[in-house]
């Protein structure tokens, strides 16, 4: 299981096996109903490329905030 914390909103547990073969962080983001283009994915507080295979069990997802 991977714990996905959408910062300021909700925390969900996602089973990577439900996301197909070799799921990526982009797949994980889609599983919590966001587009990879509207969030940053942090592992150990460091941003990671969304096409990287999921290799952590706790992930923070930062939503983009509109406005200047």
């Amino acid at each position: 299981m991977v714990t996905v914390e959408v910062v300021g909103e909700e925390t969900r547990e996602i089973d990577p096996e439900t996301l197909g073969t070799d799921p990526t962080y982009a797949d994980l983001v889609r599983a919590v109903d966001y587009s990879p283009h509207e969030v940053s994915v942090l592992v150990d507080d460091q941003p990671v490329p969304e096409d990287r295979a999921v290799d952590a069990d706790y992930v923070r997802v930062l939503r983009l905030i509109k406005g200047g």
């Binding site: 283009h37 940053s40 406005g67």
Partner: peptide
Amino acid sequence: VPEKEVALYAQLKDLPAHITECPHA
């Protein structure tokens, strides 16, 4: 520059950007 990259730049440079949505948006 895509919005996501602007946000990532602010984060990586540790700039004092305010990241709360306008309550009237």
